[in-house]
Computed example of a mutant assay.
Amino acid sequence: MKIRKGGEMARILVAGGAGFIGSHLVRRLLVQGHEVVCVDNLSTGFLSNLEDVLGFPQFHFVEADISEPLDVAFDAAFNLACPASPPHYQRLALETIEACTLGVRNLLSAALRQGAQLVHASTSEVYGDPEVHPQPEQYHGNVGTLTERACYDEGKRLAETLCYEYHKRGCSVRIARLFNTYGPFMHRDDGRVVSNFIVSALSGRPLTVYGDGSQTRSFCFVSDTVEALLRLMALPAVHLPVFNLGNPREMKVIDLARLVLHLTGSDAPIHFLPPAAADPGRRRPCIERARRALDWQPRVSLETGLQETIGYFREVLQVAGDGFEAASFVACP
């Protein structure tokens, strides 16, 4: 799915493009022939995620924070600029709130001023600990304001409200609610369950499960997420489009741990800890809207995606030094 401006390839801004999903999106856009401007403050992203494209003439990197005024011309923009893993957004709580408010408003203002399209990456966290299952886009959520997750959950909810207000003022904006994307270029210490389990299994350390592991999640491989984001950008935005983007296959966390142990061939034990505060009990997206309007559904099975992610982390763990460096993995277009 290509984005065109007047029949020509577009100049596309990817905010947060040095992060996990953003770096995959940057590659896909470059393969399609677009000029790509990546804006990232590198608080949770890494230039090493983009090492293989830094020399491309149509790629430009700007180290900047979207919470500050930004003077960049673009035809379309994807906003993925926000810490997304619990350890990161809890450590950077105020910065997370600023990215979701000041940052989103800056991008929306720039898009409106330039007549550009914008896809804003929201999250399934806007549903909180849902009382409706699976979660359709019409569900308003069950979220608390006074929790360790609130900087992210409520920040993303307010970001959607900003999108709503700017859409009323003529901004061509779309909202993507992402559900548990995983794959290569996740940070090995980012605290999300897939990377935690894989790194622990490959290192022979216990896999930590909070509670009894009966809580469920739905995991979507990154190439499927990127494809959905591109299709969403190409969708006309007469009404404010809001889409769940995720894999409707639901899995218990304990079953994910056992699957990772099986696929890695690890004999690492599973270690149980008390339940995490405000941890949602169930998550599963209803994606009927995306199936109908975007002609999209996930194509990569969990087993296949995990095998590719395990291969990536095998390389990561072989890299010398104390800091994280991306392995020599190149995402397929």
Rank of each mutant, 00 (worst) to 15 (best):
Q138I: 00
S200N: 13
I21R: 02
G305S: 06
A234F: 01
P269D: 02
L263E: 08
S214C: 06
V132I: 15
P130L: 04
P69W: 12
R105I: 14
N244T: 05
P87K: 15
P236L: 14
C82I: 08
F61M: 01
P130A: 06
V37W: 05
E137D: 12
Q297V: 11
N79A: 10
K168C: 04
D40F: 09
E8H: 11
E325A: 13
Y182G: 11
F20L: 13
E98T: 00
V316L: 06
Q58P: 01
A326I: 10
L245A: 06
C100A: 15
D71V: 15
G170M: 05
V37P: 03
R299M: 09
L107C: 11
K252V: 12
R284I: 07
P274V: 12
E160C: 08
Y139Q: 02
A121H: 08
T309F: 00
N106S: 13
I97Y: 09
F324S: 04
F329R: 06
F329P: 00
R28E: 03
A111Y: 01
F329D: 06
G321H: 10
A10H: 09
L50Q: 03
V62E: 07
P241H: 01
R157C: 06
V199E: 11
E148G: 15
F59C: 08
N106D: 12
M251H: 01
N244W: 00
D295N: 13
L235Q: 12
R249F: 09
F74M: 09
P241I: 00
I310W: 03
S223Q: 08
N244F: 04
Q114D: 08
E303V: 10
R284M: 05
V222T: 15
F179Y: 12
A277L: 12
Y312S: 08
S109E: 13
I97P: 00
L261R: 03
G141M: 09
E125N: 13
Q215V: 01
T44F: 05
A15Y: 08
A150T: 10
D190M: 04
A10M: 12
D212H: 02
Q114T: 14
D153Q: 13
D190N: 14
V39P: 04
R28N: 05
Q117I: 08
V238D: 02
A84P: 05
V126T: 11
R177D: 04
F221K: 12
V194G: 05
A116Y: 00
L13G: 13
V132E: 07
Q114W: 02
V72H: 14
L107A: 12
T161K: 08
V31G: 00
A10R: 00
V37A: 06
R113K: 15
S48C: 10
N244Q: 03
P69I: 15
F46Q: 11
R283N: 02
A150E: 07
R105T: 15
K5T: 14
K5H: 09
L240Q: 08
L207M: 07
G211Q: 03
E315H: 11
R174G: 08
L94H: 11
P285T: 15
A277D: 14
V260H: 03
P275Q: 02
S122C: 03
E250P: 07
P275F: 06
R231G: 09
D212Y: 07
E303H: 03
Q307T: 10
N247A: 13
V242A: 06
L92S: 09
